[in-house]
Amino acid sequence: MLRWLPPVVAGLALVMWLSGGGSPAAGAQQESRVSGEQLYLQSCAYCHGERGQGTHRGPPIADAGAANADYQLSTGRMPISEPAQQPQRKEPAFSEQEIAALVDYVDSLGDGPPIPEIHPEGADLGKGAELYLHNCASCHGTSGVGSVLLGHFEAPALHDSTPLQVAESIRVGPTTMPEFGHDVLNDEELNAVVAYVMYLQHPKDAGGLPLGRFGPFAEGAFALTFGVGVLVLITRWLGKQA
């Protein structure tokens, strides 16, 4: 009945394989300098200026450095079509190669922090927990759920961040977050914090359903709706209604 289907599927798969294999990574590497500048002029310069000097639409980024550029681009916060007080996390607009090219280009514009090198594997989780609780929890929460801040800002939830993005944001302090330089958190401590944040993305929920790890508010809401609901229904099952 559907005899025509297998060949069509096979044909489609072939076309997709051929088209997918058409862009060798080596080529992108070679072109990085050129296409980085090109991408910058296309997607960034309108707000940040031709040489990253900034315009009335966007802040100067000449000295933002590779870390900041990579953070903003890889979390999809940049580019944005309209100026916003705090851009939101979304799917990155560029491929990994394009981001690398753009980061290189932005880095070449001025003098900013490089992309940190991190090795969170095997870092001291306990140290990370201590540092996280003292430096991060006041905004992002002990379980990393994030919070609103004053004036339409927010401390985002940390559930989707990659280790590198966590490290970059610590080093550069995006938006309204304070930065934590080497004299405040050394590389070992940075690794520990990153490791703990990664742990918080999939923490030990030994107690069962985590209820979003929002703490007593979620627990109370669950108790007052589900718990009280079941209790009242039990009494209605046992008792009479008149």
């Binding site: 006041s138 905004c139 004036g151 302090g173």
Partner: peptide, 9 residues
């Protein structure tokens, strides 16, 4: 403990 750099709050 919560310092917002942009608005210095």
């Amino acid at each position: 403990g919560l310092y917002q750099v942009r608005s210095h709050q």
